[in-house]
Each structure stands twice: as structure tokens, then as C-alpha cells.
Design a binder for these strands. Structure first.
Lengths: 342, 342
DNA sequence: TTGTAAGCGTTATCAC
DNA sequence: GTGATAACGCTTACAA
């Protein structure tokens, strides 16, 4: 880890190693790369020379030759937000295992900035691109690029592109099934901005399962509002005044659920005995600190990121895919749901 | 943006551009780089050829020559957490403005993984490194590396290294001053894990200001616990039972403050009329959804990231710095604090 | 004003 | 087994 004394700036090159070991460049290269065409003793000499110089091969030079950079670009639109981070971790995970690194850019929801970053990444000769959206609705395609692209979280509008998304329908189904199992029949749904396709999908998933069991959503439809605790508090107030016998509230996000829980507690309803509550996203900072802890849907975002990376690597290897792949969500049961007392 | 038809895989090179424009490699290069030694008309021809081929120069090759990669490495330990993200955004911001890109790695708090990533980044010939810690306490130095390193959020234990940290003492002072201005004199402090140096710093900052004003912390010292809402709820219960006249509670984090707010509300105390409450971190998801919205300390993490990047770039330019630079925090007043009613 | 050629640090293809 | 040598795509003296 020490800088070579007397040579403070430039890292040692393979030529330095070769010279020190008293061999040619070619032999040094072969030795370090585990080629079979060198005598064990020679290899040993080269290795120790490399060790001594603390040599680390210049990956740029290597890739100049191979045509691949060993690098993928990750363009996110939601770095400050909640959803891109696990996705990014999954991708970084999948990439880091091998020998590729991740170049990160945050486009902050701006198409122009995205364009700029994509160009910069292409100039760096990334082998592929993962684009992580800020919200789950379909987004415009980047079009034909010289390298494969995978759209994560927010799918591309072009079905010829590769996309990986969460399963919002399933999320809805899972909570509904869980609540039915708990014996709930007076079920309301509170969710966020009606402009989000995902909000509708989750509602549809839940409604379908409930309908199959002969249960109709209280009020005949979900309450749309915003993704905030405030709306959760308001909506819960509306619900208990209109439907005194409500015994379950499905929330479109953990934030909404937190608000719902607060209003229920303050109105004297017990959770989960009187009313069961479910969230969505499994944002632990909210779910684990709730009273009681919140049953929620985990979208497996990290898995989504890993899968996106895996698809990308496969495409880079020459096996392109297309269409939208859906990552199943899973239910995380906690204290806010449970069997309805007799 | 279209792939050149018939040449689907390899991006066009400068040679392609030169050939199409009917000039030599050198002339093409000069034209594209704005060198003055080419006739305007020739340059025009080259530019349009480049345009036509959708040429983007291979940055790897360029940097192989210049010795710099135009890349910095960002090793974080807290990708899933709250603190590294804004720092990362600031750094990415500062870098992206120029022509350097950010290679991201998540070491997940593991020293070995960190070591591994650092080596990988050095192999990629990053021009410098920013290491973002998971918690604000000093961490072991990476030692002497061939490129400059800046430690962000968690400073290096070695004062010869460059570090950029938040000002926890100031954070404490700011809330104390604010509360005194509000006319509060019965002030308690609830904070998190006593194992965090930052927790003590914040307490010390607040205590000092209060002492200057002749106000002693209720109970003579801060209550240490954990960084959770649960602890906030518990601590608030303790406080109001022991000090019925408490009129302000300084919390070590927004999470703790959320818990404190809940207990106060449920015990019938009005916030801020009866008790003023302050948080720390200005985590908007918590602060803005609180009832009332939470007065908090913003550590200016994005600025911290920008500053770290600026220091790094300067060091890369040949102006190394050393020691720890402190980024001032700022108070964000909201509804949870206000003047004490007469 | 333009072109030729050397070189950046590797790897791969050959001779030896 | 080993070592020249030619790439890879670009910049930059230096020559024309």
C-alpha cells in the first residue's frame, strides 16, 4: 500500500515488473495472468517482483485492447429518494462480485441531464447501462444505443427494451389474502396519488382477491390522496366516521399507514384487534418504529437490482433479452395485523 | 444515437472520422479538440463527419495517454442508510460539473471489503478517492495511497489525512440558542447511543450554551439511549413524570423527536406551547410528517460532499491539504418550537 | 495548415 | 518457455 519511495506519482507498469524480474514484457504478462506457458520458477520471480513494486495492472490499458471497459453505467433519478438505493445496491452487488465496476450518475428526474450523463457514460465506453426510474410508471425509451440498456423500477415504454419492475398487482393480492386469512371482511383501501399507475395496480390486486372472496371494498372504491402521513390521518378519520365497523385498512405506502395508525390509536381503536393495518414498501425506518410495528409489502428492490444487473451482463455477453420482467413482492407480517378476535 | 447500420458492435473511432472527412488522424484530433492550427473549413468537415458517425471519443484511450482517468472512487459504508446519500450527491454534483465521473462502491461497514474495493479502484486508475463513513466517529486511516484520499462524514484518525465532517457541537449550540430565544428554561436532552462521539458533541454544544445563560439541563445530564422512536417515547415519559414543568426537549435525532412528540401529545401536552421539541438530521420524511412539523438541524451533508470533492480535486491538481474541515450545520425552524406563551 | 510517427500500458500472435 | 512485435484509440511533437 506504500507509495514507492522516489517514484511518488506514477504507478509502476508491467515494464517495471518485467525489468525487475529480468524477463520480457510478454512473459511478465503471462505470469501474472496465470497463463500456462511459463516455468513455475519464472512465474514466481515475476510475482514477487510485482509484489515488491506493489504493481496493479492498469485496467484502462487492458480494456483499450479488449474493447470492453469492465464498467457499467448506472443512471438514477432518485438518489435522494427511497427506491433507487436498494436497486443500486443490488446492481453494485452483482457487478462487484465479478470484475466490473459501477459508474454512478444522478439525473434527478431531468431528461436533459439524463441525456448528458448517458453520453458521458458512452464516452467512457461503459459495457452497458442500467437506468433506474424515480417512480414505477413506464418511461420513454432511450432508443437504440451502442450498448445494452436495462430499465429498472420504471420500465421502458418500448417493449423491445429490457425492463425489470416490481409486482404491484401481487403486492395488492398478498395483503388482501393475508387480511382474509385474518378473518377481516370490512376492508377499506387508502392510497396515494391517483396519477401513479402503481397505486391503481396495488388497488386492483387487492380488490380482485377480495372480490373472489365475496368481499367488497368499503365505499366501493379506494381513497386516493397523496403519499403522506397527513393523508393517512385524514383518510382514517373519514373511514371511521363513515364505516364504524371497518376492520382492516390497506394502505398504499408505509407513510400513509403511519398516519392511519395514529388516527386509529387516537380514536381509541385497537390495532390489530379492532382494525388491521397494512403498509407497502417495507421502509424499515417507518415500519419498525410504528406502534404496533407495521405489516408491509417488501418489493425486493435489491433483488430487482441484482436481476437487472444479471440481465445486463447476459446482454453484454451477447444474449439480448426484451420485454418486462416482474420481480415478486413479499409480505412481511408484523404486529399491525393479526386474527380478528371472536 | 443510432448505431451505425452494418457496424452494430464497435463504436466509430477517430480514424473512421478522419477517413470520412478525408484528413489525417492528427488533423481530426486537432479539429475536435478546438486546436487553433486547422483551417476553419477543414474543421467543419471533420465536425460534420464526427456528427454523422455519432462519434464520441474513447475517454479510456485519452486518459491512458494523460495518466489521469478522469474518474474518482467513492467508497461508502452506508448506502442503505441516510447519511452517505446526500454526501454522495454533493460529490457527484461537484464531479459531474467538470469532466470526471464517479465510480461507486459500497463496503457495507466491512474493512476487508473496503480494502478490496480500494484496490479495485486503484487498478482502474482513479485520480482520487472519497471514503464516506457510516457514522461520524473517527475511523482508521487507509494509510499512504498513490492517489489523494478525502474522508467524508467519518474523519480519519490520522490528522495528516484530509477529512470533512459535520459540526455536531454547532448543531447543539444552535438548538440551545433557539430554545433560549423562545424563552425556554426547563430544558431536557434526549439522545441516542452513548457510544457515538457525535451524540456527546451535540449534548456538549447545547449544554454549554444553556450554561452560559444560567440554565442547567434537567436532571443534570442528557438521557442516552438508542436512535429510535421507541426510546424517544420512553424518555419523554420519564421526563414528564420527573419534571412536570419541562418546557423544552432537545432530541439527538429526528427519530427520537418523533417518539417524544407522540408521548407528549398523548399525555396532553401541547407542542410547542407547553413543550418545544427539536430534532437533528432534518430527515424530511420524518420532520415534515410530524405533528407539528419538526424543528431540526440540517447538517448540510450535500455541501459536505461538494466540499470533499472540491478538496479532492485540489489535491489531485497538486495542492494537498490535511486536517479536518468542519461544515457548519444550520437550524431549520418549524412548528415544533416557538415562543413560550406568557 | 496538414500529415507522419512515437508512445501511453496492456494482451495476443507469432517466431525463436 | 520465452521474447519481439503488433495491435487498441488517442494526443502531440515534429516534419512537410
Amino acid at each position: 500500500m506504500q507509495t514507492t519511495p522516489g517514484n511518488p506519482r506514477k504507478p509502476p507498469t508491467l515494464a517495471d515488473v518485467a525489468k525487475l524480474a529480468g524477463v520480457s514484457l510478454a512473459t511478465a504478462s503471462k505470469s501474472l495472468n496465470g497463463r500456462q506457458q511459463v516455468k513455475a520458477e519464472t512465474r514466481e520471480r515475476v510475482l514477487s517482483a510485482a509484489e515488491q513494486l506493489n504493481f496493479s495492472p492498469n485496467v484502462l490499458a487492458r480494456h483499450l485492447l479488449s474493447g470492453r471497459s469492465g464498467t457499467i453505467g448506472l443512471v438514477t433519478h432518485d438518489l435522494e429518494g427511497r427506491f433507487s438505493i436498494p436497486t443500486l445496491m443490488g446492481a453494485e452487488d452483482a457487478a462487484g462480485t465479478g470484475k466490473t465496476s459501477v459508474l454512478l450518475c444522478d439525473a434527478r428526474g431531468d431528461a436533459l441531464r439524463e441525456q448528458y450523463h448517458v453520453q458521458a457514460l458512452l464516452g467512457r465506453r461503459v459495457d452497458g447501462l442500467i437506468v433506474v426510474g424515480a417512480r414505477p410508471d413506464p418511461r420513454p425509451s432511450l432508443g437504440q444505443l451502442p450498448v445494452p440498456v436495462v430499465y429498472a423500477y420504471a420500465p421502458s415504454q418500448d417493449p423491445a427494451d429490457m425492463s425489470v419492475v416490481t409486482d404491484n398487482l401481487l403486492g395488492g393480492r398478498l395483503v388482501a389474502e393475508h387480511l382474509l386469512t385474518c378473518g377481516r371482511t370490512r376492508v377499506a383501501i387508502v392510497t396515494g396519488d391517483a396519477g401513479y399507475g402503481a397505486a391503481h395496480d396495488r388497488v386492483d390486486g387487492a380488490s380482485a382477491v377480495l372480490a373472489e372472496a365475496g368481499v367488497e371494498v368499503l365505499g366501493g372504491q379506494a381513497l386516493y390522496g397523496s403519499w403522506t402521513e397527513e393523508w393517512g390521518r385524514t383518510a382514517a378519520g373519514l373511514l371511521i366516521s363513515r364505516f364504524d365497523d371497518v376492520d382492516a385498512i390497506v394502505c398504499g405506502s408505509d407513510q400513509i399507514a403511519r398516519g392511519v395508525l395514529d388516527t386509529l390509536r387516537e380514536s381509541g381503536r385497537r390495532v390489530p384487534e379492532d382494525v388491521a393495518v397494512t403498509g407497502h414498501d417495507n421502509w424499515e425506518i417507518l415500519a419498525l418504529n410504528a406502534r404496533p410495528q407495521l405489516t408491509s409489502i417488501d418489493m425486493n428492490l435489491e433483488e430487482l437490482g441484482r436481476r437487472a444487473a444479471a440481465l445486463l451482463f447476459d446482454a453484454i455477453e451477447g444474449n439480448p433479452h426484451s420485454g418486462t420482467e416482474v420481480i415478486p413482492s413479499r409480505l412481511v407480517p408484523r404486529g399491525s395485523t393479526g386474527p380478528k378476535p371472536a
